[in-house]
Design a protein around this nucleic acid. Structure first.
Lengths: 163, 163
DNA sequence: GAGCTGACTTTCGAATCGACAAGCCAGGCC
DNA sequence: GGCCTGGCTTGTCGATTCGAAAGTCAGCTC
């Protein structure tokens, strides 16, 4: 029915979560514009006006988000120069930003299934084979896990605090 | 370096995404309070004041979000009655809400790795074995895929629109 | 050097979110 | 009946977001 808790966490009434990583991720990238810009970065977009066109928002929003995402270390700002143009900057995903792939594609998967009338416009497949791709919970032993198969344990020395 | 596009999508300059599922998911649950409440629902919380205590927010916010998430079909509102109490309601995850597992745990995974100083308070493991669990992109053939191994194709009859 | 263009930034309103406080309401208890 | 409590709603306020429009600025073109 729900996740299982192990060790010190087993008594659920004895602790309350602080420093939740999900909430911290939301604080970092939890806006529509951040997600659409990261989506475009994942799709290969790097230039300012491409972000504006492809996210269908305004240059003001793109400017603010690019700055924020760069400061967070999710994008890196690289100078480039085309012949007869002044130097401009392109924004490319960092390794850290690339680690958002499961978050973004999981959102896509959910939206495709539940928020779109027809399964959504895009579908993930394996490059080469064309096999469908899903975002799943995978154990180290290679098994795909459902909610009931997952447990949560406290990390290292962390001591849960009594409410 | 980025995702590959196949078929009609191969020419990236020829189309612009509309009806993005990621953006729709953000519109649906893209607030800090919705995510923390869904987190608690995933952890087994069902009652109003437990949500308030465990999310460390206010009853006003919990009330508004529970209503919204119920209307979205992510939670279902079930009456219950304890002896000597009036009937109240508990909120339990629906199948649709359970499909947010990859989204939420992917956020947890990202936050644990990049936003926490010490790897974060909680860790996902396989129930029974204790093997670590990760949220990954998995192809139908059972292979775990990286960004470069993933391609995107248009869904069925959908025709991308020229910019 | 005057104008133009592309890349950003700034400014201003409307809407939303989150925190705080107060109000409401059903039913048990006296 | 009157009071209390727990669950939930409503109202207000500051902060943030989004959208549109105007402003800035570098370097090319003429």
């Amino acid at each position: 029915m729900a996740v299982a808790f192990e060790g010190v966490l087993a008594d659920r009434s004895a602790w309350i979560l602080e420093n939740c990583s999900m909430a911290m991720t939301m604080d970092a990238i939890g806006t529509r514009s951040a997600v659409t810009i990261l989506r475009e970065a994942l799709y290969g977009t790097t230039r300012f006006d491409d972000f504006v066109r492809r996210t269908k928002t305004t240059d003001a929003i793109v400017s603010a988000r690019l700055k924020q995402l760069t400061e967070l270390g999710l994008l890196s700002r690289q100078p480039y120069q085309e012949p007869g143009q002044r130097t401009r900057y392109e924004y490319v995903l960092t390794d850290k930003g690339r680690d958002l792939l499961p978050v973004l594609f999981a959102m896509m998967q959910f939206g495709n299934k539940h928020l779109q009338p027809d399964g959504g416009p895009l579908r993930l497949v394996e490059r080469g084979t064309g096999d469908p791709v899903r975002i799943v919970a995978l154990s180290a032993s290679g098994k795909e896990l459902q909610l009931e198969d997952i447990a949560i344990e406290a990390n290292g020395t962390w001591a849960p605090n009594r409410p």
